Simulated scan of single mutants.
Amino acid sequence: MTPGFSRLRREDLLKTACEVIAERGFGHTRTLDIARAAGVSQALLFYHFETKDRLFEQAFSYAARLHLNALNQIERSERPPRERLKLLLKRCSPTTGADGWRLWIDAWAESMRNTDLEETSRRLDVRGRTLLREIIEEGVASGDFVCADPDGASWRIFALSDGLAIQWNVHGRLLSRRRVAQLVRTAAAAEVGLDVEDL
């Protein structure tokens, strides 16, 4: 087996593991479920990941890496602060990528008992919040935004988004997709001194 093939095989297995875990949850997913979904033997899974816990940790790290890559693209964008804020809100929308949100929500619960998952989850949360704060600070400096407390605003916006993501994914019938998006946009606009139509 060539190194390139092995690396691609691992990526495929991690992607499949994320999909299965998002559907079944960490507590109800067996390595057999992932192996069947990937069309491989359990032996191959253990060849690559050694243990079930290691596979789950690597799968979550893989999903986190994809999200971090998307955040890095927003950070490197040369668009003005308002456009970058819109991009970030869309990327982190409570109604975007249901499979991803189910994985994150389940991982948050598991993180209370698993230090590796907690570290990855915390790194992801800090990165997103730091990027949001930096975008707000840049907008204030350029005169596009009015915000006395960019750090507090970033906490409040993400706290609302995370909370609505839980409501949307666990109790999806309580709020429409449109209403969820409106709540986040309204809160974000208020935090940075914009009209909601600007976001």
Rank of each mutant, 00 (worst) to 15 (best):
Y62F: 15
G128K: 02
A159W: 11
E50P: 03
L66E: 15
A37E: 10
T95K: 11
L32T: 13
T51V: 08
V40W: 10
E138N: 15
L117Y: 00
A37C: 05
F145N: 02
F26Q: 00
R24G: 04
R24M: 12
D33H: 09
M112K: 10
H48F: 13
A43Q: 14
C147G: 04
K52P: 00
W108T: 07
R122C: 07
T115K: 09
R24F: 11
F49T: 03
E118T: 00
A35E: 08
K86Y: 04
E50R: 14
F56N: 00
R129P: 13
K86A: 14
G152P: 05
L45Y: 04
Y62K: 06
D151K: 14
S121F: 00
F56S: 01
L55Q: 02
A148I: 00
I135K: 04
S121C: 01
T130S: 12
N114R: 08
R122K: 08
A148Q: 12
R102W: 12
A43R: 15
D149A: 13
F158V: 13
Y62D: 10
W108V: 08
R127C: 06
T120R: 00
R82S: 07
L55I: 00
S154D: 04
V126A: 09
S41Q: 14
E57T: 01
A63Q: 11
Y47Q: 14
E110D: 03
A35V: 07
E75S: 12
R129Q: 15
A35L: 09
A159F: 12
M112V: 07
D125L: 11
F49Q: 07
A22C: 08
A107D: 05
L85D: 03
D151G: 11
R123T: 05
A22M: 03
E118D: 02
K86S: 12
R123N: 10
Q42V: 10
I34K: 01
Y47E: 13
F26M: 01
R82Y: 04
F145G: 06
T31R: 11
I21P: 01
A109G: 12
A59L: 06
E50G: 06
L66Q: 15
I105Y: 03
L103R: 05
R36K: 14
E118L: 07
G152Y: 04
T51G: 10
K52H: 04
F158I: 13
E134C: 10
I105C: 04
F46C: 02
A70H: 12
P150V: 04
E78S: 14
K52M: 01
H28T: 08
E110F: 02
F145Q: 02
V140D: 10
G39P: 09
G163I: 11
L55G: 00
E50S: 12
Y62S: 09
R79H: 12
A63P: 09
A98S: 11
P81R: 09
L89V: 10
L124W: 06
L44Y: 09
R30N: 09
D116I: 00
F145I: 07
A109H: 14
S41H: 12
A107M: 03
A153I: 10
W155H: 13
L88Y: 07
T29A: 02
N72C: 11
R30Q: 12
N114V: 03
R65G: 14
A22P: 02
G39D: 08
L160Q: 09
A22R: 01
L66K: 13
C92Q: 12
G27Y: 11
P80I: 05
L88C: 06
